[in-house]
Every structure is written in C-alpha cells, then in structure tokens.
C-alpha cells in the first residue's frame, strides 16, 4: 500500500472513532433520552450478550439465509433471462419497453401483491427479495451480452463452436464484469428487502429482532441489531469485491 492510501485509511478510521466518541458524549450528557438512544457502550454490551446467549446468531443466520436465497435466485434467473434477451437484437427491441415499464416499479408496490398471493410466508419473502434483486443483475447481463465484440462471434463461427460453447466460453466471460457489478448492487437490495420482509411477515431474522426491540423500548438491543445489519452489508459487499477482483484479474492486466 502506498503512503497516500495509508493516510486515507488512517483518516477514515479517525472519522469513525470520532463518530463513536461523539455518540458516547451525546449519550452521556443525556441530550437524547436513554430510552431512545443508548451509548455505544450499552449497544456493545447488548451485542456481546446477544451473541453469547446465541439469540443474535440465530437472527443473523435467518437474515443471511433470506438474503442469500433471494440473491441466488435473482442471480440465476437474472443471468438466464438477461442472456436470452441480451443475445438477440429482436428480443431486445421487443422486450426492452416492457422492462422499462416494470423496472421503476418500487418493490414496495409488489409486496402487498406478494402477500395476497403467497401469505406471510418464507415463499413470499423469497419472491419479494428475488424480484427486487433481479433488476440490477438482469439489466447488467442484457447490457453485457449486447456488448460482446462481434468479431469474437466470427472467431467462434470459423471454429464451428457449438451454441453452448459460444455462451460459456465467449458471451458469459465477456459479460462477466457487467454481471458481477450488477450482482454487487443487488446484494444491498437483497439485504434491505430481507429486513423489510422479516418486519412485515414476522420471519425469524434481524429485521424481526429490531422490530421487537423497538416495540419493547429495548434501545440497546435495537442498536445492536442495526449495527449488525450495517456490518452484514459491509462484509458481504467486501466479500463480493474480493470475488470480483479474483474473477476479473484479466481486467487488471488490461489497464
């Protein structure tokens, strides 16, 4: 790491530490009632307590599970549909207008429909999360497949490659930077929708924990849950970046 990067890292840690200190100060001075705002000390204690009793583990696992299933379903469906639409110009011209109509629909508008059809169930959560998370992936895949260098298709033709080989050896790798970027965006969407579904349907998870804590005025537990959600979002996004970095090592060579 060079000096400038190191300096930036130190600075960002300092800002974070300052933020926690300020939070502690506000709590200590009781500028906000402790019923609503616990200090970082109490939030931390609640985190430790939650993990040692195992309560938070199971909630965390629940949220991760909702997020992972929804995201994976969105990824598989998004890449498959995106590939079909993206690889044919005719499909793009026919389907693109409908996509433009569906895409800006807020997912929150879909939730009542999903609840009406599927009830307050895991299936409903899976559907809503996948529906929300599919867009960035699908649109990125369409773009990636449409942007494959036509010359490479000619190379494939002169090698008499099979359709399947063309998809897996040429189109998918060529579109992979777009697809992975879309998957990273939808990771955040999946986390948000997991929490929303847990709150609405009372499914086991951090969303539910946060809701119950708020209702019972257990502000320290509430903050512990929120902090954990933040950490989850951060860690999954970092993991995704690492995966991208590894899978797209050839792009680093390009720059």
């Amino acid at each position: 790491m060079n000096r400038a990067a190191l300096l930036w890292r130190v600075a960002s840690f300092a800002v974070a530490a300052g933020f926690v200190a300020l939070w502690q100060l506000i709590a200590n001075l009781k500028l906000v009632s402790p019923v609503f705002l616990p200090g970082p000390d109490r939030a931390w204690a609640s985190l430790v307590r939650g993990f040692s009793s195992g309560d938070l583990w199971s909630k965390l696992a629940g949220t991760l599970e909702h997020m992972a299933y929804g995201w994976l379903a969105a990824s598989i469906a998004g890449i498959a549909i995106g590939a079909i639409i993206g690889s044919s110009r005719r499909m793009r011209t026919y389907v693109a207008p409908s996509l433009e109509f569906l895409r800006p629909l807020p997912v929150s508008a879909i939730i009542p429909v999903a609840i009406a059809m599927l009830g307050l169930t895991q299936a409903m959560a899976l559907f809503v999360i996948a529906f929300g998370a599919i867009w960035p992936i699908m649109l990125a895949t369409i773009h990636g497949f449409a942007a494959v260098e036509p010359r490479l298709y000619e190379v494939a033709r002169s090698l008499q490659m099979s359709r399947l080989a063309v998809i897996f050896k040429i189109a998918l790798p060529s579109a992979s930077p777009d697809i992975l970027a879309g998957m990273r965006l939808s990771l955040t969407v999946a986390l948000i929708l997991s929490v929303v579904c847990e709150i609405l349907a009372g499914l086991d998870g951090l969303g539910h924990w946060v809701l119950l804590s708020a209702r019972a005025f257990r502000s320290a537990d509430l903050f512990a849950g929120v902090i954990l959600l933040g950490v989850t979002g951060y860690v999954t996004s970092v993991a995704m970046s690492l995966a991208e970095h590894r899978l797209l090592a050839w792009q680093a060579a390009q720059r």
């Binding site: 000619e154 190379v155 008499q160 992979s176 050839w250 792009q251």
Partner: peptide, 29 residues
C-alpha cells in the same frame, strides 16, 4: 457456413483475441 479447415487472421487482432484468456488459453480455444 464457416468451417474449421478455413482459418481467418483478422487485421484487428485486439478484437479477435479473448482478453480474459492468456496466450495459452487463446490457443486452447
């Protein structure tokens, strides 16, 4: 249709190679 017995060397080599495959991987294709 094109056939494997006829190979084409394109002028724009930059576009005709797979950027995500190494030299060995490109020959391997």
């Amino acid at each position: 249709e094109p056939r494997r017995e006829i190979a084409i060397v394109f002028q724009d080599y930059g576009k005709a190679l797979l950027p995500w495959r190494t030299a060995a991987g490109n020959v391997s294709l």
